[in-house]
Nucleic acid binder design. Structure first.
Lengths: 126, 126, 126, 126
DNA sequence: GTGGTCTAGACCACG
DNA sequence: GTGGTCTAGACCACC
């Protein structure tokens, strides 16, 4: 069974946390083309959140083109998935803020680089 | 004059966008110890938002230890400031999601690395 | 129903008065782990202040780690809460000034002691 | 020369910090009946604040009946000074909040008592 | 003139 | 229905 975990203490909305985790699973290849996602009810019960919250997460993934959502049948991962809008600018802005915060912690350029490399390794080698 | 820009279409609250930009300016060294920030009213007028919205952004920066906010005088950058630890875990999670999105755009490991390196360069060499 | 009272004549801001009273209720154990606070709107109406003023008070309590503030659901008291250290020095200074004022009212050392003991009793035995 | 110190980082207004320190000096008997306070200009220069700020502090002390303020001559300590309004309720409220904050730090009744006794000792034995 | 507080009221995000 | 964001605008506290 898939492990989805939610941090209720976080200020990131629950539905985003869920969507984000599925995005990660698809990006990593842990969920592949045609594979079924848990049903909304099942996942909601497992995670301990409202049905609508899970439904909202799935809708986001569908909007991004990552899953195929149909009435009556389970949500399925869409294979040749290529995320929707390029949104590169937003990613750049987001990265920029991460760098700022690392620098304000007193880290220099090399340390920031190292932090990034570790993150990439962790992603690809797991 | 300082350039602060706000995207009203974004879902990130305006006050956060403002705080984030100042954080960047301080991290980059474009704003240094003791330097004055624009007055709340001035900036609010320039950016085209309400006074309270700017005030909220300044309050965040003050809480992070980046600026000194005092009654009756302009807000000033705090020099030896080391921001309130922004929790490394959150930065890691945030980075992880950026990687996911890059991968879902079809980028491979090298391309992700390159994207990060470009971001770091852009930050440090400007 | 919770009783929160505000003195509009005081020079202490209303939002602080509200936060202070909740702090007292939690410290006294009148509000315990998991218990719900009144909704922002409800309390605002009861006390006769604006919604934002109450929200600001709740935000302070959340920042101190005393309550859990979450979108869509009521604010709740956080149990194992240990408030953000309020800096002992400040408490000492504050106490020092209270002593000065008591002395200037003509009270001697024993009377000051008695005043404090009464305050402690009142706190713990109610 | 009198030592008055101001913490610009504090959120307590400077004029109050100054008034508070004089109040302490009078309560402790370090400043006695008829004794002269430094001139507004002198003190302002020493402390590094605006003339008006010191003047405001002196005005507060005068309003409390602690000093005699006259045009043309130095401010003098008033001997049989008995602070103005009894304000006992405010002192009680203030003490109550100090107790709350100590308790929220995890201190029990005895520890709170001890904290208070230490404060009283420090005041009277210095 | 600076930042802070508060209001009334609209609209959004979340669960 | 909950808390969050933002506005327009008034008034206060501080220096």
């Amino acid at each position: 069974m898939l492990t989805i975990e939610v941090d209720f203490g976080s200020d990131r909305p629950v539905y985003r946390q869920i969507a984000e985790q599925f995005r990660g699973l698809v990006a990593r290849g842990d969920l592949i083309d045609g594979e079924e996602l848990p049903s909304v009810r099942q996942l909601a019960a497992n995670v301990g959140v409202n049905l609508n919250t899970v439904a909202k997460a799935y809708r986001i993934l569908a909007d991004e083109g990552l899953v195929d959502l149909r009435h009556g049948s389970r949500a399925r991962v869409l294979g040749g998935a290529r995320a929707r809008a390029p949104e590169v600018e937003e990613l750049e802005r987001e990265l920029g803020d991460v760098i700022s915060r690392l620098v304000l912690q007193g880290r220099g350029r090399e340390e920031v680089q190292a932090f990034f490399e570790t993150a990439v390794e962790r992603f690809f080698e797991r």
